[in-house]
Design a protein around this nucleic acid. Structure first.
Length: 555
RNA sequence: UGGGGCGUGGCCAAGCGGUAAGGCACCGGAUUUUGAUUCCGGCAUUCCCAGGUUCGAUCCCUGGCGCCCCAACCA
């Protein structure tokens, strides 16, 4: 637990914890992040991770990483490894406190037996359908199972047989004996154990009965001495059950606290949907840079610190909230602006010939890696008579506020000279194919001698020296703010979320290392892809654009 | 006539009976060899609505309205 940012404001959870500490209800703070290893972590998990580890850090306590692996049919080792990597990458350290629900299976079994002996649990032998029918509905109470009054002895024997593998899947379950007419559906004799002849990623074939979430989670927390068990709002109705088990078992009672889960505009967050996007190849894997997964964002080039800032910035509450994607992007820019080296790259080239520079002359210009941080050094930028500039930086008939290049106009070449557009060359279709410009060679590092101002500054690369690299321009994965409001969320997919193109970049960029992020000046931040880049042949992912008030003015 | 939650500016969010923090967005203006960054300044007489209690209510009470969650042998 190392990198928690300073809290910007209070929230209800901090208030609860502070009160608990002051009143003496608790003498320390232990939290946990309890993912089920059935998929990759997404930005919603990041919120929970920052919260749990952040709180532990603030209160000098600790946060456990615990895998809630109680359903062997959905869980895999691949996922536990990916989750560990993601949590660590986010900047959090669970130290020795790595746990698995499956480590507690034996203890959980003993507790189930204890409940049976106390007459608080029984073996149900109806079918799943019958159980469902007898549970009643939201407005009508359920009815007691015909097996509800089996003797303790019979229950004990049956449960043991369940454990021994004497029954096929689905034939029996162990249920808590609570109240079939409770207005809280979770209390209508919830299932504690089901029979599953499935191979578990850690316990193998040792067990063929597995505990349900409700029977496992609170006890797991209790075993670990968790003081504050923080989860999302949909578990609110489970809290009475969570407490019921701890109370019946008479074991250490953590406090469950619920908060509102994160909703991000233009994205979906459910694991089921993310899995579908991956399986049906709408994206290229869990770590596709368009995915809201931690691994996707990492590959996209989002710094871990930006995600932490984001989680702190959005706050924690109990009101359902929708955060705009732009908030996340802004955190990314804030972080990258500080650290990313500046480079020049042209994505959509237009040729420019400097008529008053000899064709055989090459100048090695010096340009800073970061204009606000000279200590970060410089790189050299070759300049010659043939350049490429961005097509968008020229307009034949520009509006008044346009201060880039146009016929007869002047502009500053970033880190180089001021040039003037003398001539516009077109092809047979009337398409502009080249600009012929003259440079004021006395403007390197200074303004024109006559003192006149040149407002526009554009980036460029030397045609002869420019290197061609692959670039992936990413946009939001979905077109709709809330993809779930579409008839089918897949219909809200943005067909242009990925555009593969090429860029002409300054030579120094060929040395970019996988995962390294640069600001292509005036364009955006780009990160060398960690999978597809090769030595001397980087592939760049557009991480995020720069803020663009000109684009806004045009719109 | 099921239960549990939530409702503060465009988006988040503090506040917990004493007269609306902060961030993001937005709008001005300054600096700038990135229309970026940075920097200044502006931005809720009002807290879902209506009553009530109180000297005083976003905070307490009553009644509405709106939204979210719950009927897996998932977590």
């Amino acid at each position: 637990m190392s990198t928690a940012e300073t809290p910007s404001s209070s929230n209800f959870i901090r208030t609860i914890i502070t009160d608990d500490l002051e009143s003496g209800k608790r003498d320390r703070v232990i939290t946990r992040f309890p993912p089920e290893p059935n998929g990759y972590l997404h930005i919603g998990h990041a919120k929970s991770i920052c919260l749990n580890f952040g709180l532990a850090d603030e209160y000098k306590g600790r946060c456990n990483l615990r895998f809630d692996d109680t359903n062997p049919t959905k869980e895999e080792d691949e996922y536990v490894e990916a989750i560990k990597e993601d949590v660590a990458w986010l900047g959090f350290d669970w130290g020795e406190h790595l746990y698995f629900a499956s480590d507690y299976f034996a203890q959980l079994y003993l507790w189930a037996v204890q409940l049976i002996k106390a007459g608080k649990a029984y073996v149900e032998s109806q079918t799943a359908e019958q159980v469902r029918e007898n549970r009643g509905t939201l407005t009508h109470p359920g009815v007691d199972s015909p097996y509800r009054d089996r003797s303790v002895e019979e229950n004990l024997e049956l449960f043991e047989q369940m454990k021994n593998g004497d029954f096929p899947d689905g034939t029996h379950i162990l249920r808590a004996k609570i109240d079939m007419s409770s207005p809280n559906m979770n209390l209508r004799d919830p299932a504690l154990y089901r029979i599953l002849h499935a191979h578990h990623h850690r316990t193998g074939d040792t067990w063929c009965i597995y505990p349900m979430y409700d029977f496992a989670h609170g006890q797991e927390d209790s075993i670990e001495g968790v003081t504050h068990s923080i989860c999302t709002l949909e578990f609110e109705d489970h809290r009475p059950l969570y407490e019921w088990f701890l109370n019946e078992l008479e074991i250490f009672a953590p406090q469950q606290i619920e908060f509102a889960r994160l909703n991000l505009s233009y994205t979906v967050m459910s694991k089921r949907k993310l899995l579908q996007l991956v399986n049906e190849k709408h994206v290229n894997g869990w770590d596709d840079p368009r995915m809201p997964t931690v691994s996707g964002m990492r590959r996209r080039g989002y710094p871990a610190a930006a995600i932490r800032t984001f989680c702190e910035r959005i706050g924690v509450g109990r009101a359902a909230s929708w955060i705009d994607l732009s908030v996340l992007e802004d955190c990314v820019r804030e972080q990258l602006n500080e650290s990313a080296f500046r480079r020049q790259a042209v994505l959509n080239p237009l040729k420019v010939t400097i008529t008053n520079v000899p064709a055989d002359r090459v100048e090695e210009l010096v340009a800073p890696n970061h204009p606000q941080q000279p200590e970060l050094g410089n790189r050299t930028l070759p300049f010659s008579n043939e350049l490429y500039i961005e097509r968008d930086d020229f307009m034949e008939d520009p509006p008044k506020k346009f201060f880039r290049l146009g016929p007869g106009r002047e502009v500053r070449l970033r880190n180089a000279y001021i040039i003037k557009c003398d001539e516009v060359l077109k092809d047979d279709n009337g398409e502009v194919i080249e600009l012929r410009c003259s440079a004021d060679l006395d403007t390197l590092g200074k303004n024109p001698a006559d003192g006149h101002k040149v407002k526009g500054i554009i980036h460029w690369v030397s045609a002869r020296h420019a290197q061609k690299v692959a670039v992936r321009v990413y946009d939001r994965l979905f077109n709709r703010e809330n993809p779930d409001k579409a008839e089918n969320y897949l219909q809200a997919l943005n067909p242009e979320s990925l555009q593969e193109t090429e860029a002409l970049v300054e030579p120094s960029l060929l040395q970019a290392k996988p995962g390294e992020t640069f600001q292509f000046e005036r364009v955006g931040y780009f990160t060398a892809d960690s999978k597809d880049s090769q030595a001397g042949k980087p592939v760049f992912n557009r991480t995020v654009t720069l803020r663009d008030t000109w684009a806004k003015m045009k719109a």
